[in-house]
Computed example of a mutant assay.
Amino acid sequence: MDFQMFLKLSISAILGLIIGLERELKRKPVGLKTCLVISIVSCLLTIVSIESAYIFPMKDHITMDPLRLAAQIVSGIGFLGAGVILRRGNDSISGLTTAALIWGAAGIGIAVGAGFYWESIFGVALLIVSVELIPLLTTLFGPKQLREKEILLQITVLDSKNIANVIEAIQEKNIHIKTVRIKDLDEQHHLIKLKVTVDQKRSTTDVYYSIHDIPSITNIDIESV
């Protein structure tokens, strides 16, 4: 094994470490070790694929695609990505960014294994900027919709005649209602499930306190998406 292969694996490990560290700092299910393994092994398989294409034809006159194994990595890594995408009980989906970064770590490993060092380094830099800096800028300077966050509210209202008044009172608290679902618990109590949006800077506790004293509400369950 020559120095060039050691260099490829080392660069791949460093770049995978950077991607994994970003996920680890956010306490995501796929972190440092997973991204390291993906990046290093993807790089190794790419090296094997390329080197085999030049070794075997000289010995046995076999024709091989230099990136045949690398092509299978791109599709095969999908099962890891699918494993971190979760559908919660509130119908929201999480883990898409982590799944995308798994795929990205594999792509970086393939690129380094194929010898595209500077392109890989620049690619990782763009990935970190994309998942860290861009969301921050959009919350500060982007359209209003990008500066809002979703919150799920479940409130129990006493007497069905008060439902309309309660919804109107919530909207007066600078809480924008997107969806409404009403369920009868018994003759007196009614469950209202709301998906609402508020300013990104507004805390979940502030939303709770703002609706806590609305008349006819007997119970509140609040969750930030």
Results as ranks from 00 to 15, higher is better:
103 W>H: 01
80 L>R: 03
141 F>E: 06
133 L>V: 15
123 G>C: 15
136 L>W: 11
102 I>T: 10
80 L>I: 12
85 I>W: 08
139 T>G: 00
144 K>A: 00
140 L>K: 11
134 I>V: 15
133 L>I: 11
138 T>F: 14
98 T>Q: 02
136 L>G: 09
106 A>I: 07
140 L>W: 08
110 I>S: 03
99 A>E: 01
104 G>S: 14
105 A>S: 12
117 Y>E: 00
105 A>N: 03
90 N>V: 06
124 V>W: 03
146 L>M: 12
109 G>S: 11
97 T>M: 09
124 V>D: 02
125 A>P: 04
140 L>M: 10
90 N>T: 13
125 A>L: 15
127 L>K: 01
152 L>C: 00
108 I>F: 02
93 I>W: 08
91 D>I: 14
123 G>I: 07
137 L>F: 15
146 L>I: 09
101 L>D: 00
98 T>H: 01
83 G>T: 09
120 S>H: 07
136 L>Q: 01
136 L>N: 08
116 F>Q: 01
139 T>V: 10
89 G>K: 09
148 E>Q: 11
137 L>A: 13
113 G>A: 13
105 A>Q: 01
94 S>P: 05
106 A>Q: 04
138 T>Y: 12
129 V>P: 12
115 G>W: 05
107 G>S: 10
116 F>K: 01
91 D>M: 14
114 A>T: 04
120 S>A: 11
107 G>E: 02
82 A>C: 10
89 G>Y: 07
143 P>D: 03
93 I>Y: 09
88 R>N: 14
132 E>F: 11
131 V>P: 12
132 E>Y: 11
94 S>W: 00
126 L>G: 13
125 A>I: 14
100 A>L: 00
79 F>Y: 14
78 G>I: 13
132 E>R: 07
129 V>A: 12
95 G>Y: 06
104 G>F: 14
95 G>H: 02
121 I>A: 08
144 K>I: 10
87 R>V: 15
120 S>F: 09
128 I>C: 02
131 V>C: 07
142 G>V: 13
87 R>F: 12
82 A>S: 08
139 T>R: 03
106 A>L: 13
138 T>R: 05
98 T>W: 03
113 G>N: 08
151 I>Q: 00
142 G>H: 10
107 G>W: 04
122 F>S: 05
93 I>G: 10
82 A>L: 09
79 F>R: 05
115 G>V: 13
140 L>R: 11
91 D>L: 15
139 T>L: 09
100 A>S: 09
150 E>C: 07
